[in-house]
């Protein structure tokens, strides 16, 4: 149980970074941390006690394998995370080019 709570606090660290930091790069790092926390959580859910990695091999006897589906799913989710991170970084670079700063309190032409 404790490990799930640790994972959730990891997610909260990312959330804190997203909501509280003023530097765009730090915000992006917050997004990455939160993403990894969710991926880790998904992997942890699939764990069985004393389980082994879900690798099917010709001469090993397969006993007590952990659930393989979340591992495939998380791989996809990591790829999506890569794409999101890349587009966020590209936007951040362009923003720096236009505004000359990474501070979001100074990037406020638009008011929501």
């Amino acid at each position: 149980m404790a490990i799930y709570l640790l994972c959730l606090s990891f997610f909260s660290v990312g959330l804190y970074g997203i909501l509280r930091k003023r530097n765009i790069i730090k915000i992006i790092i917050g997004v990455i941390i939160a993403e990894y926390a969710v991926n880790l959580f998904f992997i942890l859910i699939a764990y069985r006690i004393e389980g082994r990695a879900p690798i099917y091999s010709p001469n090993a006897e397969i006993t007590n394998m952990v659930d393989a589906l979340p591992q495939a799913v998380v791989l996809t989710s990591i790829v999506i995370g890569l794409a999101t991170t890349v587009i966020l970084i590209a936007l951040a670079m362009r923003i720096f080019e236009k505004y000359g700063t990474f501070d979001i309190t100074k990037i406020r032409d638009l008011r929501g």
Partner: peptide, 27 residues
Amino acid sequence: ERHELEAAFKYALMSTLGSLFVLMGIA
């Protein structure tokens, strides 16, 4: 341009956050 980039960054951030909640729900 300036406004497009700022809006897109805000949108990307919020939308990614939403996706993370969805993924956690799916997990």
